[in-house]
Amino acid sequence: MGRFIVRRLALMVIALWVVVTVTFFLAHMIPGGPFDREKPVPEAIKKNLEEKYHLNEPMWKQYLLYLNDIIHGDLGPSFKYPDRTVNDIIKESFPVSAQLGFWAVLMATFVGISLGSVSALHQGELIDSFSMFFAILFISLPSFVIAPIFQYIFGVKLHWLPVANWGSWKHMILPALSLALGPTAVIARLTRASMLEVLSNDYVKAARARGLSGLRVLIVYALKNALIPVVTYLFPLIAAIFTGSFVVEKIFNIPGLGRYYVTSIYNRDYTVILGVTVFYAAFLILMNLLADITYALLDPRIRYE
């Protein structure tokens, strides 16, 4: 276990370093980008940038200083609004995205696992065909399609829920649903496949042959083992939900980090794009590590490596 985690940790650190390095050099490649010194920029901002990014220094030194800033959690100022820093933006808006994402992840895992298990246990029956048909349907709908459709049906037409904006729990339902539906479907399919595989295993047959109760076999023998591969999907799931939030937050006008990110892409606020990319990357890479550790905890073969 220790060795496993150390290895994953090393991998994550390298991945993070690659992201930071790539973003740094990409940013310096942008023609007319923030570090293009030919570009006419207001004097105040230019000065700010030069100071912040040490544009007078040689490239390698700029890079090292940038790395140093990142390690200290300083993601730099905004290119468009010099009085704001990327850190300010994240501090303000990430909690909103995190809250939305949390509910979406919770819903996707809970509903997905339940649906998948029920389908597997009733393989070939109506409920199985039904839920698997809807699963494939929702997988085929990207969240930026689901979101406006929900908005239209439940907000504009039926007036059941607010069309947009952020505030009460009611505001959260539609965006969270839009984010969660696709991942729910993926988890349901994954759980079903994994469950069917596990159910056909000898140890499940053997457990039944020992006369253990159906519920016991289901929970202790089938579900627990079936969920191990599902855990490996947790990271892509969280990544999908957070990147999905970029557009969903924009569509529902939610003041989350995703909306800021997309807005900064629209008005080419390069330093914010950079900073938020690094932040999101770090966040997702951390989630990846957590998923790996969960996986290791569930599987004794890794736990006691």
């Binding site: 991945a15 690659v18 990409l26 940013a27 980008g33 990544a239 390069y270 890479i285 990846n288």
Partner: peptide, 14 residues
């Protein structure tokens, strides 16, 4: 381990 979409976004910006 790298969130691909983020890098793709960045690449597209560049």
């Amino acid at each position: 381990a790298i969130p691909i979409l983020l890098i793709v976004i960045l690449l597209m910006v560049v």
